[in-house]
Nucleic acid binder design. Structure first.
Lengths: 194, 194
DNA sequence: ACAGTATTAGAATATATATTCTAAATAATA
DNA sequence: TATTATTTAGAATATATATTCTAATACTGT
């Protein structure tokens, strides 16, 4: 019934994610994205209301993918050892979805979810944050019952440490397989250290 | 002999560092910095040739301070246990120099050292990078002799892991004291894991 | 074939902000 | 007290880029 789009919304976000991984969110201009996607600047405004919305989509699509993987693994862990193994989801994600990992790991969330972003995006971000908070709390209760600092320890061990290890190699390279053993050992030690 | 400046170059960089820690490098405009410093926009150009130079100064001053502390500690470590203790320089720096830690830890170096930055800044950054690379190599040779992956392990353990742990709390908060034990245990485990 | 519609295409406009410029102000020195 | 160098002060200009607008296009269903 109408002229077909050169590129779907999903493909557009994927291209924009690559641009952001290479140049950073500040340099992710409408012109840069439209050039990378091979479509005119005006066309982007048929998919998204503003540049702020584009940046929010880039971050949210990366975060939703990573978080779904991570929480699934974390929820399945029945022991500290299994939790340490689950923490390897982070280096694996960085290998398989490099650009998304750079977006999440080498930049601040605030650079993508800016002040003027439409409420719908804000709601998606709030839902993600609540899910992660609840997930952390549940694991803390299950694996470190009675520990008053359990949530901080879990967040540091399962999120902070693997992310930091991976970040040594991002954004230029991919984390080598050899560091996974170090990450797993480190996470296990952090979980057992309180 | 002349009208005195309202603010010294060091104070200007300190104010700009606070602005960047709060708003990020992209929002660190000349107007935002001059407003925070209480001086007119034009005055900033008497100290620095451009906004790119300002951003470079912000990053370099933070990085030089952190790296001097970190390399001193790392060089003094004579065992894996001492190295693990030395890694606590990262959470301590985050507590004592919060804004500088946010600049270094919550943003990419490339956002500060941009394409158009004068060569002098580029040279300072290159010197820092070389010093860190040499420092890591020396520690790797000393503490993990013969290990082909020693440099990666040392970088992940002494830099990546503590930075990642601290980043769970930045930029809003300061890392609580309680996580230092987890960091030290994690670093020790990562060092001993190959 | 034709009408209808979403999209392309890219120029025009608006806006934000980096940078430059002119004049006035300030303090040390002669 | 007059001179001089430096900085303040903030307006003017330049530039980059987000957003809007008009027209042309390409496909689908009738």
């Amino acid at each position: 019934m109408s002229r077909p789009a050169e590129i779907s919304q999903e493909e557009l976000i994927a291209v924009a994610t690559l641009v952001t991984a290479r140049l950073g969110p500040a340099a992710t201009s409408i012109a840069a994205v439209s050039k990378a996607a091979g479509i005119p600047t005006g066309s982007i405004y048929y998919r998204l209301p503003s540049r702020d919305a584009l940046l929010a989509e880039i971050w949210l699509s990366a975060a939703e993918r990573f978080q779904a993987l991570a929480l699934e693994k974390f929820r399945a862990a029945r022991s500290l050892d299994e939790a340490a193994e689950a923490a390897l989801v982070t280096p694996r994600f960085a290998r398989e979805q490099h650009a998304a990992a750079v977006v999440l790991n080498s930049h601040r969330r605030e650079e993508f979810l800016r002040a003027g972003v439409p409420e719908a995006y804000r709601a998606r971000a709030a839902k993600l944050a609540a899910e992660m908070r609840d997930g952390i709390a549940a694991i803390a209760e299950r694996l470190l019952p009675g520990d008053p600092r359990a949530k901080e320890i879990i967040a540091v061990a399962l999120i902070g440490i693997p992310l930091g290890a991976v970040r040594v190699f991002l954004p230029q390279a991919v984390p080598p397989m050899e560091i996974d053993a170090a990450i797993e050992a480190a996470v296990r030690a952090a979980l057992g250290a309180q």
